[in-house]
Design a binder for these strands. Structure first.
Length: 427
RNA sequence: GGAGAGGUGGCCGAGCGGCCGAAGGCGCUUGACUCGAAAUCAAGUGUGGGGCAACUCACCGUGGGUUCGAAUCCCACCCUCUCCGCCA
């Protein structure tokens, strides 16, 4: 959520910055509602003030006297008037909220111009494309052939966009989760968190999923809970309505969770394989930082996610999302795109974003820069470190051998009893 | 699922329908004392909104209601805890 008061001070500037996202956003109705809101507050305060003064007098007045009776009659009508004002205020605030909660974040000044993903500049590349003396298979063909990924039976037991992992694939997924968490917690200074996999609607609003992207969430209608679309939601909301001490920042959390997404509107996209699933595993990095530190923290966090790819020896590139491709809540985002030789393409495997105060304003997450001073909104950041299913895809495609096995990267071997290869499973 | 208890400021904990934004304690900040620290003493210390400001309004789990007036009374809901049952 954006700061309406700030926006109202310099409407043209903010409108121009929002326009970089490419969608026409009309701020005038927001400002009009904000003005109306302040009007109602002022009139209400005035009446309440008059009423409380009268009540002070009534406290000591003779309860049976004529003066008391007169006051009582007058205040009765004032109370009714206040009630009417409060009701209109409630309506105006609901409308304003509705509008304000739908406004996207302001892109950082450093965000490159551009309309869509094609305009995202590549800012660095690590490693090289592996050479094959055979034609590498796509992971889903390979996984099926090896008998370690079962897409058909997943359809039977659940439906499309779900997968059953078996044997070497299941073990690989599990090893990757452990590998990632171990690295981030022991070398990068993150505290491990294992949060609930269902959250309430307030949490979803706090991080910006609601109200705009409600269609994307799996909902437990009966209980009012939602399956987490990413660990970002429960982990960022850990500190909702809290005030950090200055010295406790930055706070860093690493969390494994499965992620559940309805993928509404992506019918026909990536229908095969593990790339786009309704349920996938992810290790997420979340940071709470002081505003002046967040840009640096963003670079750092991105580097932490990159470390995973580097240790696994996977070639990737980093792209700087342009204004038109930036997610709704983000002020700046770097995507890590891993090379997939089977698909002959780079695919997103991590997205690292700085939300600045967009989420913290919604979720009221603040810190006190100095004892006795007013609390200030923190900046929140997060990034995948990494999407586990897509990492499995990358390993299968990059490390497949001519004889139908998959070599396991050195860094991962301690997590699989030093096995060197994933072997076919013939059951 | 059944029975009961309770939700008040960073924490603990009082609170008669008006004098309660809220006693007291702890914590924290500042000052005094000290070579320094501890102890002690003194003062200060919630959040948000409106207003250029003086100032003002709201907030005692949430939402309604009664009343001139509600932290305090009534209703509904949410949450927490204890006991019983069930259960990985």
């Amino acid at each position: 959520m954006l700061d309406i008061r700030l926006l109202a001070q310099d409407p043209e500037n903010f409108a121009a910055r929002l326009a970089r996202r490419g969608k026409g956003i009309d701020l005038d109705p927001v400002f009009a509602l904000d003005r109306r809101r302040r009007e109602l507050i002022q009139r209400g305060d005035e009446l309440r003030h008059r009423k409380s003064k009268a009540e002070d007098a009534m406290k000591t007045a003779d309860k049976k006297g004529a003066e008391f009776a007169a006051f009582r009659e007058e205040m009765r009508t004032v109370a009714a008037e206040i009630k009417v004002l409060e009701e209109s205020l409630k309506v105006v605030e609901a409308e304003l909220d509705e509008k304000a909660l739908y406004l996207p974040n302001l892109p950082d000044a450093a965000v490159p111009d551009g309309a869509d993903a094609d305009a995202n500049p590549v800012i660095r590349t690590w490693g090289e494309k592996p050479n094959f003396d055979f034609t590498p298979l796509e992971h889903d063909r390979l996984g099926e052939k090896m008998g370690i990924l079962d897409f058909e039976r997943a359809v039977k037991i659940t439906g499309a966009r779900f997968t059953v992992y078996k044997a070497g694939a299941a073990r690989l997924e599990r090893a990757l989760i452990n590998f990632m968490l171990e690295l981030h917690t022991t070398e990068h200074g993150y505290t491990e968190v294992l949060p609930p996999f269902m959250v309430n609607a307030t949490s979803m609003q706090g991080t910006g999923q609601f109200p705009k992207f409600r269609e994307e969430a799996f909902e437990m209608e009966k209980d009012g809970f939602f399956l987490v679309p990413t660990a970002e939601v429960p982990v960022t909301n850990l500190h909702r309505d809290e005030i950090f001490d200055a010295q406790s920042l930055p706070v860093r959390y690493a969390a494994y969770t499965p992620c559940f997404r309805r993928e509404a509107g992506s019918y026909g996209k990536d229908t095969r394989g593990l790339i786009r699933q309704h349920q996938f595993n992810k290790v997420e990095l979340v940071q709470f930082a002081a505003p002046e530190d967040s840009a640096r923290a963003h670079e750092e966090l991105t580097g932490h996610a990159e470390q995973i790819l580097q240790r696994l020896g996977l070639h990737y590139r980093v792209v700087d999302l342009c204004a038109g491709d930036l997610g709704n809540s983000a002020a700046r985002t770097y995507d890590l795109e891993v090379w997939l030789p089977g698909q002959n393409a780079y695919r997103e495997i991590s997205s690292c974003s700085n939300f600045r105060d967009f989420q913290s304003r919604r979720a009221a997450i603040r810190y006190r820069p100095e004892a006795g001073k007013k609390p200030v909104l923190v900046h929140t950041l997060n990034g995948s470190g990494l999407a586990v299913g897509r990492t499995v895809v990358a390993i299968l495609e990059n490390y497949q051998t001519a004889d139908g096995r998959v070599r396991i990267p050195e860094a991962l071997r301690p997590f699989v009893r030093n096995a060197e290869y994933i072997l076919p499973e013939n059951t």
